[in-house]
Design a protein around this nucleic acid. Structure first.
Ligand SMILES: [Mn+2]
Ligand SMILES: [Mn+2]
Ligand SMILES: [Zn+2]
Ligand SMILES: [Zn+2]
Lengths: 156, 156
DNA sequence: GAGGTAATTGCAACTTCTTGCACAAATGAC
DNA sequence: GTCATTTGTGCAAGAAGTTGCAATTACCTC
């Protein structure tokens, strides 16, 4: 059984209906390599089935998010992006200055979960974080501490 | 010098102009106890100065966010909320089931920063996180259930 | 204080995402 | 397959947040 069929089965077991729209959206998320926007998903769906509305895409994504099959993350882009939880837990470090993005392995965040559980009785999801900050290049005390103080307003 | 005057001074030193709109927004953020929405700020500004546009509020909030005087956080509410960084660093645990919110002291997240710096050369902001998950009441193995069973096990 | 200049504002249009509602269709029972 | 139930969809309107632009104004120099 392929990945998206497994999720589809879970959906049905939970009492949700398996519509062509949902199946297409699931297949698209499965076939792609992570971080799709709703608009990208909508465009791919419409290639097969041109009358699907963007609101259906959003409703499906919100359903899959609620059931924790996908994550919804603001990666500092202009829109929120969606990714399968199932393809390996990981996070992202994103430079607020240059926009560079680095994968953060889950192992560094993982110890947090038992601590939150012990101290607060809280079972944290820790599915897919975007942590903002300054990358090595952009840090004031960075490696190439050469160029400095050239900052202006209104940069992109 | 009061708090918002200190930030105002910093703004001017960075070359930004001190408009009445900016001063009012700063004062409102300073006078309130955290987690204001843009709409709330807008309403309070208009009580003093009725022609201020909501876009000016957003532009000011984005400026203060860029300069790291305030944080912008999605607390699971219907809109994003803003809070002063300066009033003590902290985070929030939010139950995705019942919506309950618990303060998380910064000390639990703080050890992450040096690890990210060491391993990735990344200086993470770690200013104000909202961590979603299940609270003690909503967990499948919550305290009530454990009490019924007469069990108590520290999970780690 | 007046004048020049560039940042900032208000407005309107726009983007992203959500929601109410009538109709369509997935599902289960027969 | 048909029927009944009840969920899901498309559409249009709405809410939250952004942006282009012309007019205003903060701030610097005199
Ligand atoms: Mn990812
Ligand atoms: Mn807070
Ligand atoms: Zn960078
Ligand atoms: Zn809860």
């Amino acid at each position: 059984m392929t990945g998206h069929a497994t999720i589809a089965e879970s959906l049905r077991e939970e009492g949700y209906r398996l519509t062509p729209q949902r199946m297409m959206i699931l297949a698209i998320i499965y076939d792609s390599e992570g971080h799709l926007s709703a608009e990208e998903i909508h465009q791919r769906v419409r290639q097969q089935y041109p009358f699907v509305d963007i609101s259906t895409v959003y409703r499906t994504l919100n359903l899959l998010k609620k059931l924790r099959f996908i994550t919804e993350t603001d990666l500092g882009d202009e829109c929120v992006r969606y990714e399968l939880v199932d393809k390996g837990r990981h996070h992202h470090l994103i430079c607020r200055q240059c926009g560079a993005s680095f994968a953060l392995e889950h192992e560094l965040l993982a110890p947090l979960a038992p601590r939150l559980l012990e101290k607060y009785g809280f079972a944290a999801d820790l599915d897919h974080f975007a942590i903002f900050g300054l990358c090595q290049q952009c840090r004031p005390e960075g490696p190439a501490l050469a160029a400095k103080k050239g900052q202006q307003h209104g940069d992109a």
